[in-house]
Amino acid sequence: MKKKFNSLKEFYSYQSNNTIMKSKILVGYGSCGIAAGADKVYDTFESEIIKRSLKDIELIKVGCLGLCFSEPNVEIIINGLPDILYGKVDEKFAVRIIDEHIINKNIINHNLYDKPYIDLFNNKES
C-alpha cells in the first residue's frame, strides 16, 4: 500500500497494516547470512509454501540478528508457541521446519538458539 502523507494529521491517523498477527518465517538476509546460504534457504521456504499452498504465513527477509557464527538464522513466529530461532539452517532443514514446526506445530530439537536480547518496542523476550 503506497500513500503519501500530506500532513502530520494524516500520518498520526494512519495505522500500519503490518501489525496483523500472522505466522511468520524471518530469514536473516544480511550479507553475512547470504554468504552462509540464506538465499537458498529463503528460496526453499518460498517454493515449499507455494507447493503446499500454505496460507496465512508470511515469509520475510530481515537484516542481521548479529549471530554470525550460526548463520543462516531463521526465526519462526507462530501464535501460541514461543518464538523460536534456528541457527545453521540449510535447505534440508528448511523443509523440516515447514513439515514439523509450521504444519505440525512441533518445535524441532535441533540447533535452537536463544535470542540474545529483548525487543525494545514490543517488550517481549523470546
Partner: peptide, 23 residues
Amino acid sequence: GPLPIYHKQLRLVLRNSGLIDPE
C-alpha cells in the same frame, strides 16, 4: 509481563535489525 532479560546485550541501534523487513 514480558520475560526478563538475562543477557548482557541491549539493542538500541539494532532495535529493528533482524525483526523487520528492511526493504
